[in-house]
């Protein structure tokens, strides 16, 4: 391909509460800027086509797949990745704790995107049911868990009394 002369654009974006500035090419995707320039490990890349949801973030409060947004579009906006979810002291927030308790993650690659989508769903005011959770998560692919425990974790975070993992009844205090 004849090399397009990339226009370089200055951007400043508040990422996880901190102002970040950079120079990006007009075709740089937001997910690449977050990952490559800022070393943000929340957004992951699993498909390149907007199907898998591993790169899901919140963008000025809107849930988006960051591979579908140009970095230049993010100038003067606010981005939240999964790295912003834990409490300031490093402890897990309720949703994260439910993922842990209900074994809602295995390899962990989809987890950041799942957490962002689930956070958005829980804050949306939509009634939380097994079906609404499944529908809410349908833009996020997980290839490890079969979704069952993710659905349970999200419902548990909404206060539902869901089935505990196998053997959890005999769980020892740790």
């Amino acid at each position: 391909m004849t090399q397009p002369q990339d226009e370089m654009l200055p951007i400043s974006v508040t990422v996880d509460g901190r102002l970040e500035t950079g120079q990006v090419s007009s075709r740089t995707l937001l997910v690449h800027w977050l990952r490559d320039d800022l070393d943000k490990r929340g957004p992951k890349i699993g498909c390149d086509t907007g199907n898998c949801g591993a790169c899901t973030i919140r963008w000025d409060g809107l849930l988006v797949k960051s591979c579908m947004v140009l970095a230049a579009q993010a100038d003067d906006t606010r981005v939240e990745t999964a790295a912003s979810l834990a409490h300031d002291d490093g402890s897990l927030n309720d949703l994260q704790a439910c993922f842990k308790e209900h074994h809602g993650l295995q390899c962990g690659y989809c987890t950041s995107g799942m957490l962002m989508t689930a956070t958005d769903l829980l804050e949306s005011g939509e009634e939380i049911t097994e079906h609404s959770v499944r529908r809410g998560l349908k833009g996020n692919i997980c290839r490890c868990t079969g979704y069952e425990n993710i659905v349970r974790a999200v419902r548990a975070a909404a206060g539902h009394d869901v089935e505990k993992p196998h053997g959890a009844a005999e769980e020892v205090a740790s």
Partner: peptide, 28 residues
């Protein structure tokens, strides 16, 4: 045999839940 055979929360989970894991493309 306090631990073997029991449902124990995973040691891996905290870093993965906090986006502090290091997958192949993460390593700087």
């Amino acid at each position: 045999s306090t631990w073997t055979g029991k449902t124990v929360p995973r040691k891996e989970d905290d870093r993965l839940l906090k986006a502090q894991g290091e997958f192949g493309d993460d390593t700087p």
